[in-house]
């Protein structure tokens, strides 16, 4: 009875995601192969992390435009630190992201600048810092340390027993092989989403995030720590963007100061597709994850479709198709969700 009030958030995106998976699995050979699944997960975990931060920001009614260029900057930072090992690279990159997030948060909370403007400024600044640090080139990471295992490895690979896997494995074998070959960045994203779900639903912080987005003045009058909540949300977004940057460097073997362009829009799209209100106050972490997967899968499906040789759509089409999906899902969502008058 209590759950009857779960709003339509997430239903639309889940349906659309299932639809894509079923169509893909039916239409393309190898679409549901463990190789393909793992590749999709590995590649999209960066976006999942960035979108998670964005989800929290948007739930407070804000926006973070800086995530893409912050990720680009931290990829450079972590690439420079990669010779010292995995941990320094990881921590350095995340710390750089946290700094950017703290800066956004500070500007928004203390200087009372609108999030759009504040994070636009940080976006430009972070982009500049990345380019300056990298001297306008990509910065190769060290392959001597274990740094690349973060983006390219699979956490549990070495624990995989010999009997798992093989070409003629049954479903159990496939599942186990998926488990042992689950990409390290996807583990990171998974943990982040689990932690975020707990944070949102079972910790005061999460409730405060939604409360601030649902009515900032009301929250202030209720005595909620609104400034702290808003600050933490941007800090979190910066940290997650930093982590995504580290994965970027590690996965592609270089710090990429010019990567990350448009990531913020991808993240915003994922969050919105997941049914989170752009004006704040209502949202879902898991639906955001579904949104990331949906938009990510469209790219994969396009590749498979091209591979069949019937048509040849350039990568530019993926933007058009993503846009169309975004619209359809959001429309679906608003039909399914019960309106709540403010």
């Amino acid at each position: 009875m209590k759950r009857a009030h779960v709003s339509g958030a997430g239903i639309g995106v889940t349906l659309a995601l299932l639809f894509l998976i079923i169509v893909g699995g039916w239409r393309y050979d190898g679409f549901l192969s463990s190789y393909n699944i793992l590749t999709v997960l590995r590649y999209n975990s960066m976006f999942a992390l960035v979108s998670l931060g964005m989800c929290f920001v948007i739930m407070t009614g804000g926006i973070d435009l800086s995530v893409g260029s912050v990720a680009a900057m931290t990829s450079v930072v972590s690439a420079y630190l990669s010779p010292y090992g995995l941990l320094p690279g990881l921590l350095g990159g995340v710390a750089a992201g946290l700094c950017a997030g703290a800066l956004s948060g500070f500007i928004i909370v203390k200087l009372r600048i609108l999030p759009f403007i504040a994070t636009l400024a940080v976006m430009l600044a972070a982009s500049g810092v990345g380019l300056l640090l990298a001297d306008n080139q990509s910065v190769a990471v060290s392959y001597d340390s274990s740094f690349t295992s973060l983006g390219q490895g699979s956490l549990l690979e070495s624990f995989q027993p010999d009997w798992v896997g093989g070409d003629n494995a049954n479903w159990l074998g496939t599942a186990l092989s998926l488990f042992f070959n689950f990409p390290t960045p996807a583990w990171l994203a998974l943990v982040a989403y689990v932690v975020a779900t707990v944070l949102l639903n079972w910790r005061p912080f999460g409730r405060h995030v939604l409360a601030v987005g649902g009515g900032e003045e009301a929250s202030r009058l209720m005595g909620l720590p609104t400034d702290r909540t808003v600050f933490l949300v941007y800090l979190m977004s910066g940290g997650l963007a930093g982590l995504a940057g580290v994965i970027l460097a590690s996965q592609f073997g270089a710090g990429q100061p010019i990567e990350g362009v448009g990531w913020e829009l991808f993240a915003i799209a994922s969050v919105v597709v997941g049914g989170t209100l752009l004006s704040g106050g209502r949202g879902s972490v898991l639906a955001t994850l579904a949104g990331v997967m949906l938009l990510g899968l469209i790219f994969t499906i396009l590749n498979f479709e091209n591979g069949m040789g019937w048509i040849s759509l350039s990568a530019y089409w993926q933007s058009v198709i993503r846009g169309a999906f975004l619209l359809v899902v959001v429309m679906l969502q608003s039909k399914l969700a019960r309106p709540i008058t403010a």
Partner: peptide, 24 residues
């Protein structure tokens, strides 16, 4: 001065939530 999107329970307890040991 309440928050329409949130539940009635939350609107009453926001800011001084009851917690289990461990902060949940």
């Amino acid at each position: 001065n309440l928050i329409p999107f949130r539940t009635i329970t939350e609107n009453i307890y926001l800011g001084r939530e009851l917690k289990h040991r461990g902060g949940f």
